[in-house]
Design a protein around this nucleic acid. Sequence first.
DNA 1: TATTGTTATACTCTATAACTATA
DNA 2: TATAGTTATAGAGTATAACAATA
Lengths: 159, 159
Amino acid sequence: MENSGEGTADSQLSDGALAAGLVVMLERMVVLLRSLSQSDQLSATSVSTLGTLSREGPSRLTALATRQGVTQPAMTQLIARLQESGLARREPDPADGRVVQVSITAEGRAFLARRREQQSRHIAALLAQLDPGHRAALAAALSAMDALASASRDAAVPA
Amino acid sequence: MENSGEGTADSQLSDGALAAGLVVMLERMVVLLRSLSQSDQLSATSVSTLGTLSREGPSRLTALATRQGVTQPAMTQLIARLQESGLARREPDPADGRVVQVSITAEGRAFLARRREQQSRHIAALLAQLDPGHRAALAAALSAMDALASASRDAAVPA
DNA sequence: TATTGTTATACTCTATAACTATA
DNA sequence: TATAGTTATAGAGTATAACAATA
């Protein structure tokens, strides 16, 4: 059932084999990205939360906790730290007094931009060592990665 | 200087733009992979260390610490936990009495296999939602990701 | 002396449980 | 009563500093 063979004519891999290959590669990409961020002051979850706020705009606290896979109290404290550092801002929701809306500050965006610029320089140095064909394959896969990440996000936050 | 335009004819992106795009996508891949592993008993560093031991064979403790970007004492304790769980094994080096050689056990390999299988099922479900063209692009990029990760590893461990 | 690894201690981040405030 | 978020407390994982053993 899993490998029907239908609809896979475009790639030389079955869906199952592609998924298995991707999992291994994603693991290695995680290691790669971590090696580029070792001098970070912020935790991985904090950076990831800032990235979500940057991409998707203000969000309530509980939604952020769910998205990042941490508990509500953990997110309360994480946002408190980001606020303390001036990277995020908390605002009450006019429509519902219980809700806290969290948003990224200009300083938060600057932090992300700085971080990405540093990482881009490292990645660019690695890319320069690759075959042109490999570089082209990565460039051609960017929008597919975007689609994959979006599918994951929509699956995690169905409503 | 960064976007010379030379040697980028194969991809429609400059090296700088490709690097910048990749960094953003890698961030999102990290979030994706984390969402697939939320029920893990082991820390991300522990899983990553097991993966390194699985791919590259036995390694001394300091090398593992460097590779994972943690301190020597942290790796001492991490390996103690893996050993406690039966996932890794410590052995003295016959050639140098100071050295500890760490290797993955059969149980450790089974843990990784189980974990990857679960993640593959999730990824396969996401892949099924993508355009065939996107799936093909991801399949075509697997070996390029491998090359990128290897370049990073070789840069981090030059000797 | 330099290198490999361990022990001691403190800090950061997270989870669970109990709570407050609003709906 | 249910929901959004906070406070209190405990545990996991890490870093720095000081140490032991081998080279």
